[in-house]
């Protein structure tokens, strides 16, 4: 039961790929924020993430004009993020 936080886009950072190596599809979840949300426009990335529980930061998605592209992904605001981090056993910030 781990909440994985990704803040950087895979274009610049190994965070997402490293995380995917260890995240458990059944019990963990992945929350993308900051520039990490951009990569969800890529079909290839979405395919990789298909079996994981994914959240995105609503604020970061809206700020980048991506809301209408990422409708299929659950968006969380700050207080929902805090609630999520309490629900999971631990948080790993990649």
């Amino acid at each position: 039961m781990i909440l994985h936080l990704i803040k950087d886009t895979p274009a610049n950072s190994s965070a997402l790929n490293t995380c995917l190596r260890y995240a458990r599809k059944q019990t963990d979840c992945i929350l993308l924020s900051g520039n990490a949300v951009n990569c969800l426009l890529q079909a290839e990335v979405l395919a990789h993430l298909a079996d994981y529980k994914i959240y995105v930061s609503q604020e970061d998605v809206a700020a980048r004009g991506l809301t209408r592209f990422l409708k299929q992904i659950e968006q969380v605001n700050y207080s929902e993020f805090v609630a999520l981090s309490l629900k999971y056993d631990k948080v790993i910030s990649w």
Partner: peptide, 17 residues
């Protein structure tokens, strides 16, 4: 293996990257 490392993450209290 990735599975062994994932199990190690489960086992510890905090993970810092």
């Amino acid at each position: 293996s990735a599975e062994e490392i994932a199990a190690h993450f489960d086992h510890v209290d905090e993970v810092m990257v």
